[in-house]
């Protein structure tokens, strides 16, 4: 049976590690989600032509 109480330092480290883990997981999720959005056919070639105010439709695949 563990008797020792965690020092505040360990609590801080654990908090930091958990926070970093969440950030990394979120980053993976974001990259995944962005990849899906791009691959699913967001027209990346669509551009806004500022010189004459028209939207250029890109060449779709």
């Amino acid at each position: 049976m563990a008797i020792a109480k965690d020092h505040e330092l360990h609590t801080r480290r654990q908090g930091r590690n958990v926070g970093l883990g969440v950030v990394l997981a979120a980053f993976v999720a974001i990259v995944f989600g962005l990849t899906i959005a791009k691959v699913k056919g967001v027209d990346v070639a669509t551009g806004y032509d500022a010189s004459n105010g028209i939207i250029n439709e890109g060449i779709s695949e």
């Binding site: 020092h7 330092l9 609590t11 801080r12 480290r13 908090g15 930091r16 926070g19």
Partner: peptide, 15 residues
């Protein structure tokens, strides 16, 4: 005060 000696910050401190 371990934090000032070691710079051991919590996650909130980095935020």
């Amino acid at each position: 005060d371990m934090t000032s000696e070691t710079g051991e910050a919590g996650f909130r401190d980095f935020v």
